[in-house]
Amino acid sequence: MNKQNDEERQQLLLSKIAQFRLFDDDFMSKVFEDDIEATEFLLKVILQRDDLKVMESKGQVTIKNLLGRSVRLDIKAKDKTGKVYNIEVQRADEGADEKRARYYSAILDANTLLPRQNFKDLPETYIIFITEHDVLKGGLPLYHINRTIKENGMTFCDESNIIYVNGEFRGEDEIGKLMHDFSCINPDEMNSKLLAEKTRYFKKDEKGVKRMCKIMEDFAREEKEELKIQIATELLEDGAYPIPRIAEISKLSENKVKELAESLQAIAR
């Protein structure tokens, strides 16, 4: 029975992988993770620049916030000038809310400077949302959001940039071709040979498929663990249950629940 269950689970994973597109964030983050060339290509198209040089690219980067909500970034990258980029893919419109972009920008800033480091050292940042739908509903391929001074229209140069990329846009320009590629299930239909090659590796190459199956299983375990922690945290904040009962309900160890309780008490102080 266990062997049969394992085979069924494997077939389910393979069928999911076969349907993945770059608009699926877990898949996209692995396609671009640690791939400087692919990340550089993506940023050059979106920013419409030829001089950009990426030095670092990481996928599924978790930024902890002890005083509030933590986040997991799809892609975090840095270029040779020190500019920092967060690239997010959003299929659901609500996942690309304007205040989410604001929060990601803020938490990226909050985790950039070292203690007592000068504020002038804060790097220029880009929060880039690639959305499957035209969530801002302007019919534009790109939306650049920057702060301006209301009274005279001058730019407020805090070097904080937010860009929305309209995934519905199609055209013969580079953005149109890129959004076509993000929508493709079959890598053979992609315009970019680079993206097609990386997508093909995770979909059709034996080693790549095995790696993607492992990644999906790891993500599933992480999500279950995060759900347990969320349940335990809510019960601790409610204050109606003792730690052994919370451990039983959340399926966490008593030691883990005690650690969460201590963290909450530290925050309260």
Rank of each mutant, 00 (worst) to 15 (best):
L12Y: 11
H133K: 15
K224R: 07
I162K: 09
A240N: 08
F182K: 02
Y104I: 03
Q4A: 14
N166V: 05
E132S: 11
L52A: 09
L122Q: 14
R269C: 04
L13S: 15
L235N: 04
I149S: 10
G68Y: 01
D34K: 15
D6N: 14
I145S: 08
D188M: 05
A106N: 06
Y201V: 02
M1W: 05
R21I: 02
L47V: 08
Y85K: 06
I249T: 01
L73M: 04
E223R: 07
D121K: 14
R269H: 08
F32L: 15
I267H: 03
R116L: 12
P115V: 07
K53F: 02
A220C: 04
N186D: 15
A268T: 00
P187K: 11
K214S: 08
Q60F: 05
D205F: 01
K193L: 09
P141A: 12
L14R: 13
E225Q: 10
L264G: 02
D188P: 00
K99H: 06
K251C: 08
L42D: 11
T148I: 12
S57F: 09
S105D: 14
D34H: 15
I175E: 05
I231M: 04
V257H: 00
Y201D: 02
I149L: 15
Q19A: 13
K256I: 00
I87D: 06
P244Y: 05
E223K: 07
T148C: 10
L108I: 00
C184D: 07
D35F: 08
L235I: 01
E174Q: 09
K193N: 13
H144D: 15
F23Y: 13
D109E: 10
I215P: 06
Q48G: 12
D50P: 08
V45S: 05
E37M: 08
L43C: 04
E40T: 06
Q117V: 14
Y104S: 03
D218F: 05
G239H: 04
G153N: 09
E168G: 04
N152R: 09
I17G: 05
